[in-house]
Design a protein around this nucleic acid. Sequence first.
DNA 1: TCAAGGTGTTCAATCGATTTAGCAGACCTA
DNA 2: TAGGTCTGCTAAATCGATTGAACACCTTGA
Lengths: 350, 350
Amino acid sequence: MGRVRISDVAAAAGVSTSTVSLVLNDRDVRIPHETRERVRRAAAEVGYSPNTVARGLRMQRTRTIGLISDTIATTPFAGRMLAGAQDAAREHGYLVFLVDTESDPQVEQDAIRALTGQQVDAMIYAAMWHRVVDVPKGLPAGTVFLDCRPATGDFSAVVPDDREGGVSAVRELVAAGHRRIAYLDVDEPEPPVASALRHEGYLAVLAEAGIEPDPALHVRGETSAAGGRQTTERLLDLPADRRPTAIFCFNDRMAAGVYVAAHRRGLEIPRDLSVVGYDDQQLVAGELDPPLTTIALPHYEMGRWATEVALGVRAHEAPRSTRLMPCPIVRRDSVSSPPAAATNSSRRRA
Amino acid sequence: MGRVRISDVAAAAGVSTSTVSLVLNDRDVRIPHETRERVRRAAAEVGYSPNTVARGLRMQRTRTIGLISDTIATTPFAGRMLAGAQDAAREHGYLVFLVDTESDPQVEQDAIRALTGQQVDAMIYAAMWHRVVDVPKGLPAGTVFLDCRPATGDFSAVVPDDREGGVSAVRELVAAGHRRIAYLDVDEPEPPVASALRHEGYLAVLAEAGIEPDPALHVRGETSAAGGRQTTERLLDLPADRRPTAIFCFNDRMAAGVYVAAHRRGLEIPRDLSVVGYDDQQLVAGELDPPLTTIALPHYEMGRWATEVALGVRAHEAPRSTRLMPCPIVRRDSVSSPPAAATNSSRRRA
DNA sequence: TCAAGGTGTTCAATCGATTTAGCAGACCTA
DNA sequence: TAGGTCTGCTAAATCGATTGAACACCTTGA
């Protein structure tokens, strides 16, 4: 237990607590090697480990960091983000306080008070979906926003580069020879910012490939396998020459629905229809048959980045800026070249 | 920021810091209402919030709790467990330090030192799979084990009641009229303790229903959809009168494989084959078609329980005991009565 | 008038570390 | 021998709160 105090070490080594502190913290003070050794041995013998609360009080620096998250239970991403933050913190000798607010403003306020009361050296405000958030009152100046951007104020933030993610996905399909590529988007009253960003990427790639975007191929559905299935069915109902040969989905769950719709029509993936998802959810993308090519969300990296910036160990980083973290493509087996007929038909159209 | 000290409040209210402390902590000391009000107003005006580091040092009580977890990134369960711990801690005014060790013994040792150094009031040692763990050196006496049991020593622990979970699952199938029920178990060199416990429950229900267990129906496969599919195929290769009409799966991912195998044979779930999973993984069980009936793992509840016991707010609980947390059944649409043919055949056999 | 008792508030010690200024004593030099 | 320098170590202040002891001041009763 934390029973052993520095004075116990001092007594055991026959010196003052000052000397013990000086030695154990490797201060540049003239203390002969022999004494240093004696102190260190004494500390080890009595099993001393410093009381960091006392140290924190004296040093005005607690080596702790507060992480406020809007949820941790309801998304599979939280763990990776926490792990990234966690690892970065540990590497620099920090401990992290985790608070889950479930988006309750009262809990959030209490959390901010509690964490500042704890004298945390840095604070991270995390969301589990890329979005714009109001800055809660009382947030300290150096707070870093993780997977969200503050609506106002001058803060550092890190979010996934959803536009480039869309680019990678669609470029993969174009590179395989597809020209009729659908974007299976989300259908929500307030769509997540990722929705529009990925669409931007989609359009950019079409443009660079000289493909005229077809509005009929930008469809929206519920964010679920069922939603993906239904929307895909509408897509497959299109006349043969307007039907997509590839679908870029807003997320992996919707992509799972694409698989179902395709199978019901006797279409084989990727032979008859190529699919790219988003999120790289292991339980979905990895378990589908064939495994789904998708775009990974860099939650671990964002967690790391946010922590490192919060701790100030990324001095070269532009201060108070928003970092767009790359979303790498994860190639599996759901993309191939389009079926010959479609290729022909598109050639005919060209 | 934590700039405002109690002395600032004292100055603003024209009293000593003692008085401020007495008032703000509602001590039973004769201080007239008028002064109390004045102090409180001053505190609010200057925006005082106490430095809990200083308080912790003085009180020898930090109102923090340390949670050491073997992983948080690689399982979808971690979030629920953390949320449970988190909620319980918050309700009692505690903040939680989270450390993710990735099962690295060195990291674990460092974490224990760091947390005891932080003078945490309680400690929780969590695993993400129900298993028996070696007790790391230096763990304080009151540590509570979460989702794991200590191999030695006298500790409180909470784990899922996997035996009863197996009972619920199989009873559900028996109640629907099934008599040929397979247990699709995991196939690993060191199977998780849940494997045997659920099998116990399975056997118990068969016994209570007067069903002779058929060893051919206890099969093992890889824990994945692919493993579930392959193993199910072997099951479906059995002669018609020995073939199962229902399958109880070790987990939902394997159950997803059962669906695939069934569909490939033209079998419809639940008409031709009933399925019960385990884990209640939203992304799997909820997205399958039809949605999967399964047994939920009580991670949130276990997280709560462990925290409450660690904080000593569950005095009535037997000390240093292992709590088996019930695994409730989640009824969806993958169970129905067996096909008529099978019922007849089993009647014939009787 | 004075002791006793009550009321309102403060003094000062305390928690366990860190750190600066400074003190003995050894040694050196003129 | 006195003064200066160097070496090795420690005294004491400090961080910001809490709290038991104690101190003024007022009232009351004999």
